[in-house]
Structure formats: C-alpha cells, structure tokens
Design a protein around this nucleic acid. Structure first.
Lengths: 183, 183
DNA sequence: ACGCTAACTGACCGATCGGTCAAATCCTGA
DNA sequence: TCAGGATTTGACCGATCGGTCAGTTAGCGT
C-alpha cells in the first residue's frame, strides 16, 4: 500500500461516513497516520482527493453503460445486466453511497457532475418510457444504493452477509424491472 | 407568514439543496431577506433551525408508525398504509430528502437521531423478517425517497406531475411489498 | 561518502463560519 | 404622545478550515 492509495482509501471512508463537507483534511491525515501537509503533497487539494476516490467507480459505471439496453431484453439478458450492476454497487458501495447522498450538494465538483450525467444516461438509455418505468428505475437504483449505504453503516446491528444480500438484491430488482415496457 | 416560519421554510429548502453543512446562516438570511443576526434571534442556533425544519415531518411519521402492521395484512390494508405513507413523503419531500441523504453525517444532531430511530422502528415493526423482506423494505423506502429527491431537483427537466407520481409510486411499492412473508 | 530527489512536516495565512452583543428601530397599548 | 417590549441590525470575536511555504528527513544511485 502506497501512501497515496492509503490516503485515497481513508478519504473514501471519511467522505462516506461524515460527508465531503463534514470531513476535514486533518481527519483524513489522522486516519492515514500522516500530517495534513503530507495529504496536500500527494493530492493538490481536497477536491482532487474526492476525484481520486470516486473516479475508479465512475469509470466502471461508464463501462457497463452500453449494456443498459439489456434491461429491455429477455429475462436472461436483464438478469445478466443486474448481476454486473449489483456486483459493481457492492464493490464500490462507499462511492455509490457518496454519489447518492451527496451528489445534490456537490454538483459544482467536476467528478460528481460527471457521475450525475452517467446515471442520467443510464436512466434515459431506454426509449419512450412511461411514468411507471421511470418510477421503477428510480426506485430500483435509489433503493439499492440506500440499502447498501444502510448495510454499511450498521455498527453493531447484524447485517446480512454480502452474498445473501447480493442474491436477494438481484432477484428483487429483477422482479421490479421485469414489467418495464419493452422497447 | 411570520418571519420565523419564513426562516424555517428557507432553511428547509437550503438544507435540502446544499446540505446542512453546506448551508451558512447567511445564506438562509439572504433567502428570507433578513440579516444573519435576525436569524439567530428567532432560532438560538443553526441546529435549532434544523430541528424546527424537520420536526413537523418527524411527528407525522411517528403518528403512522402504529399502522405499519398493515403491511403484513390484506391487500387493501397494505394499500391503505402505502397511500398514507406516500402522501406523507410527498408533503414532506424536502424533509425526507434531508433524512435520507444526510442522516448518516448528522447522527449527532438530536432531531436526526430521533428520525433514524423512527425509521428503524418502522422497518423492524414486522416480526421474523427474511433477508428478502428486509431488502424489499429498504429498496422501497430508500427508492421512494430517492425518487422524490431527484424529482425535486429536476431543474429544467420535465418532471412528472405529483398526482401521476403518487399513483405510480403507490402501485409499484404495493407490488414490491406484496410478497413479504405474512406475520 | 556524497548528492539528489521524493516524501514529509510544523508553522503560518487568509477566509469563512457560528455565535454574541450593544445599539437602533418598530410596534402596540395606555 | 409616550413608555416598553419585540424585532432587527452591523460590528465584532474565537475557532476552524483549506491551502502555502520553507525547511527537514529518508531513500537511493554512483
């Protein structure tokens, strides 16, 4: 683990739990065991640190964007897309949590704006949506992210293990999106 | 409109769009057309202002808490509960948005802690839940709140009108929660 | 052993924020 | 008209934050 990657990881956790505005550079430095000045040596600014923490998740989200059409396909195609999507959410659950909870307050930050554009592109990838379709999709996306955020912030509370959560989430999102109007 | 209620309304909007930490007392004062000192005359602190802005929503949420058992009842009972719940979300959509997006970063604020306890009580009101049940409920709750938050932050974009959104949301949440295991 | 560069740090700066306070102004009832 | 409380305000304070900078330490090729 290089210092830079440790800082990126510490920032990701801190931003997710306390919020970007609620996180001081000093707090990130403390978590990583270095000085505040050292943080700003590796990253030119607090915003650059947010960018570094979120970019990996954004790139992978962008990579599966072309597959969104599978949602209007057969049951197998839809399930295939959902498996990739849920796995991606699980892998980058902290980044997803930051997106969902703070994208509104951080629209002026470039990396967040890019993520918002991506999410909107995913939502609008399928043509001639009914209101029901939009609601199904928004509930599925927001609900999944909220679930993972809550599961992550369960302190003592017993949270279901990831594999169980994954299976259940894939199944239920599948049901939720099964009745979208075909393209 | 008294000055106090105008300030409470301005604070609610500002907290929802920019976040509690991202909102300065000066910004609330500007929105309401008064001075910063005047804000602190009507409310003893920024935290008191948040409390005043969120309390009405919390009280109504607490009022429907006993009806949560209807989720395990007949289809009509469940629909009846969902109608009340969705209407409550629509009426207090800004407060709901603040809860969902910032409760994690604001757990040390008493009013937010109270809200979190309420939500947890609602989620745990039904006995012997399976993982699927938990997932369904979390997706429904978080998804609905996310949808309203997004619909509220649509600037130019055409957002579906409230009645259409209400009908669709009630129907789809009903489907989502229809297959929870009976008590 | 030397020199060079990357890594790191404490001290400091300007700006902003939440909150206080004394004074000014407004409003109302007698 | 006027006394007195309610309301409003500008000036100010201490604390915190993001960021800068000069200087120190650590590692490494020669």
């Amino acid at each position: 683990m290089t210092t830079a990657s440790e800082l990126r990881d510490a920032a990701l956790r801190e931003f997710a739990s306390a919020g970007y505005l609620g996180t001081s550079i000093q707090a990130i430095a403390d978590r990583a065991g270095v000085s505040k000045a050292s943080v700003l040596y590796h990253y030119t600014s607090k915003e650059a640190l947010l960018d570094a923490a979120l970019s990996p998740a954004i790139e992978q989200i962008g990579a599966i964007l072309p597959r969104t059409v599978q949602l209007s396909g057969t049951d197998e195609e839809r399930r295939d897309f959902l498996v990739r999507f849920v796995d991606l959410l699980l892998e980058h659950r902290l980044a997803a949590q930051i997106f969902i909870t703070q994208s509104g307050a951080l629209i002026d930050v470039p990396v967040v704006a890019r993520a918002q554009v991506l999410i909107r592109e995913i939502a609008e990838a399928r043509p001639q949506q009914t209101v029901d379709d939009q609601v199904r999709f928004a509930v599925a996306l927001g609900g999944a992210a909220y679930l993972l955020a809550q599961a992550g912030s369960y302190g003592v509370q017993a949270a279901p293990d990831d594999t169980q959560l994954r299976d259940s989430l894939i199944r239920i999102l599948g049901e939720l999106l099964a009745s979208v109007t075909p393209a």
